[in-house]
Write a protein that binds this DNA or RNA. Sequence first.
DNA 1: CTAAAACTATGTACGTCATACGTTTATTAT
DNA 2: ATAATAAACGTATGACGTACATAGTTTTAG
Lengths: 276, 276
Amino acid sequence: MTYIVLEWGDDTDGTAMATRDGKGADLRRSLTLLWEGGARGQRGPRPRLTVERIAHAAVEIADADGLEALSMQRIAAELGYSTMSIYNHIPSKDLLLEVVADVAAGRPPELGGETDFREAVRRWAGALWAGFQARPWLLRVPLDHAPVGPNQLAWLDRLLQPLLAAGLVGGEARAAALHLTAVVRGTAQISADMSTARGTDGEFPRDGVELARALAEVVDPDGYPALAAVHAAEIAGDDLGHRRPDGVLPAELSFGVDRFLDGVESWTAARTSRDG
Amino acid sequence: MTYIVLEWGDDTDGTAMATRDGKGADLRRSLTLLWEGGARGQRGPRPRLTVERIAHAAVEIADADGLEALSMQRIAAELGYSTMSIYNHIPSKDLLLEVVADVAAGRPPELGGETDFREAVRRWAGALWAGFQARPWLLRVPLDHAPVGPNQLAWLDRLLQPLLAAGLVGGEARAAALHLTAVVRGTAQISADMSTARGTDGEFPRDGVELARALAEVVDPDGYPALAAVHAAEIAGDDLGHRRPDGVLPAELSFGVDRFLDGVESWTAARTSRDG
DNA sequence: CTAAAACTATGTACGTCATACGTTTATTAT
DNA sequence: ATAATAAACGTATGACGTACATAGTTTTAG
C-alpha cells in the first residue's frame, strides 16, 4: 500500500472550494493523493522522503502524544528534515490527515469463516471499536467526506459482504454500512473518556453512572423527566448499565447493534416471503 | 437560559487531566461552566461582558464564516473588547466551544401531540438532521463527553420520552438514544459536503452516485468486490439511492432508522408477551 | 560527455493562534 | 472616604501552517 501524490494543481480555480467551513473537501484532490500511482518522477534526485514515511511518522506521533501534538514541524523533526520539506510531498495538513487516518485505520479484520451474518457484523463492529480504543485520536480527525482511502474502503467492503449476504440490496447495504459505522464511531466518541476516567471520589466509574450522579448534583430533574427516570434506573443499577461486555462488543453498543440487526433480518425476511 | 461561571479553580491539581489527547475532558469543570448559578460577584464593577454574550457572538461568527474563523480575537473584536477580556468569563477555548455548541443546538422540537413513538423518533431525528444542515460547523466541534449542557440534555430528554413510551427500560432507552444520536450525526457528517458539492463535470451529484463514479476511476474493483457491487447498483440507479426524502428524514437516514425502530419494536413486543 | 531540465530540500519570513502575566480602572462594602 | 475586589486591558511568548525564494542533486537529451 503506497500513497503517492500524482498532482494537486495550483488551486488557481479556487472558486467554489470554500464550502462554508473551508478546508476544501475536494474529492478528486484527496483521491489523487491517496491512491498509488507507482511511477515516480523522471528527472531529479530520488526522493528520500515519501508520503508513506511521513504518514507513518505522523501516526507514531499521534499514538504517543495525541492529535494535538501532530504538527508539521514535529513530523519533520522526527524524520530529520526541515519543516518545509514535508510540503514537497503533501499539499496541506488537511490532506495529510486524510492519509494518516487511512494508514492508522489499518487493514480490516478477517471475517472469512463466519457464516452467520449477524456474528460477522458484530465482529466487524467490535474490531472497529477496538481500533478506536487503541487510537482515540482517530475520533478527532475531522471527517470531510465519505471514505476514499484504501484501508477505509477495505473496512467498508468487509462490512458490506455480510450485509449483502444477509439479503440487503445495493443502496440498502450502503445505508446499513453507514449506519453501523456511525454508531460505532459515535458511541466510541461519547464513551471514550468515560471509560478511562476515574470517578472523582475514587470510585470506579461504570458507564453512565458517574455521569448520572454528576448531573444530578446540578440539574433540576423536573425539567428533564425522561432523563431523570433513566438516571434513576441507572444509579439503582438496572439490567443494561452494569452488564459486562458480551464478547467483542461493549454493552453500550451491543444493544443498539442487535436491535438494528433484528430489524435488518425481519426486513429481508419480509422481502423473501413477499417476492417468493 | 443563562450560562454562568461559578468557579473554575486554579488547575493546580493537574494530575490526571491529561487524558492522552489532552484538552482535559473534566466533567465537573464543564458542568460548573454550563449551568446557571444566578448570583453574580459581589464587589467590583458589574460585568459588561457575559458568557452568554460571548457565546452568542461566537455562534454568529461560526454561522457566518465557519468554525475555523472562530477565534478568541475575532469574538472580542466583534463585541468591541480586548481579546483577553474574554478570559475573564471563560477559562479556555475548549470550554467555550462546549457552551457554544449547546447554545447553537437550541431547543429541541416539540413532539407533544405525537402518539406513535416511531413517528416521534423520526421527527426528532429529522429536526436534528435539519439542525446539522443549518449549522454544519456543529459537526466539527470536538466531542469530549456525553452531553451536559441544558439544550443538549433537553434534546436527549425529548428523545428518551418516546423511547420509554415504546417500552424500553432505563439502560436500553439510554443506549437507543445514543444509537440514534450517533446515526444522525454520523450520517450528517458524511453526507454533508456531498449534498452541497456540485459534480465536477457540472452534473448534479445525487447522493453516492458521484462518489461511486469518482472512485471507479481510480480503484481496482477486484480488491473491493462488495463495494463494487454496491457501486454498480448505485450507478445503475437502484431502489434506495434515488429515492426522495420521505418527509423529514433524508433517504440515507431513513432506511437505517426504520430498521432500528423495527428492531426496537419487536424487542419490546417480545418482552410484553414474555412477561405477560 | 556535457549541459540543461526537472525535481528535491532548505531557510527565512509572515500572519494568526491561544493564552500567561502584570497593570490599570471601575465599583461596592465598610 | 477608603480599602478590597473584580473587570478590563496591553504586552509578550511560543507554536502553528504555509508562502516564497534559493540552493542543491540527479537524470536524460544532445
